[in-house]
Structures are given as structure tokens and as C-alpha cells.
Amino acid sequence: MRKLVGVAALMAATSFVQAETLTVELNIPEMDVAEYHRPYIAVWVSDDSRQIVEHVAVWVEQEKWWRDLRSWWRRGGSQTELPIDGVSGATRKPGTYTLTWDGDLPEGALTLNVEAVREVGGREHIRLPLPANHNGKVEVKGSKELGLIAATIAP
């Protein structure tokens, strides 16, 4: 009961912009390595206190290693029940993927997070600040585990 009251208070305190569309283009690069495993990847939107606002994609396999997406896991992945409809799924092979997320986002500064971790490989966590007015396109190139990441947000 207490928890419910807390959630209601939080909802009242945060104002939401109606129905925004977030499109994320995400590239998983080819790796020239002897032993290749597809990366576990988490994509989420966080607020300015780094808390998870929305999960956009969670591509994972064995539960034991979900924790290796260590930012996602400790920031809130561990408090989330998987599978998440339309968000979680199996790991993907190298290539470019387009993710579309529709819904209400809180006002204010938001960051798109993309975290990738590969067995016997490396880890990369990209933080891409979304446009302040929640309208426009931003992009960044990953350095190793991730290729080009582009985010478009529109009302």
C-alpha cells in the first residue's frame, strides 16, 4: 500500500510529454577475432540522476551473465522482470538494427544509454544525451564493441 502511494506521488511530481517516438539505430560491428560470441546489449533512457526511465532493448541469453551488463543491471535491470514485451529478446549478429519506442517520456534532460558486453571480448557503455527539447537527431560512433549509434526523437 505504501509503495502504491509512493508511485502515485512520483507520477504527480513528474510531468510527462505526451506520446513521443524514439528511434534508435544501432550497429553491432563485425569482429575479426578467433572466438566470437554475440554481445549482450541493453539500450535504455535515463534521467539526469542516471535512473532508468525506459528500457528500449535488452538482448541477452543466459541469466547468469545478465549482470555483466553491469551498468544496466545495477541501475535497474536487476529490478526489472524479464522478458519485457517488445523490448527483450535474444542476442543479435553483427549488423545495423532500428529500434522504435513509442510512449510518454518525462520532461527534462534525458540520456540514451547503450551498453554492450561480449564474452571473452570487451565492454562499452555509450551515453548519448538526447536533444533538450526532445526533438531532433543525435549520433555517436562507438569505439570497439559498438558501431554507429543514432537516436531520433520526435513528438
Partner: peptide, 9 residues
């Protein structure tokens, strides 16, 4: 060996 787990271990 671990501080944070995602599966019983």
C-alpha cells in the same frame, strides 16, 4: 567471488 548476481549461484 561475486558481489552482484543475476541468477542463483
Amino acid at each position: 567471488t561475486d558481489f552482484s548476481l543475476s541468477d542463483a549461484e
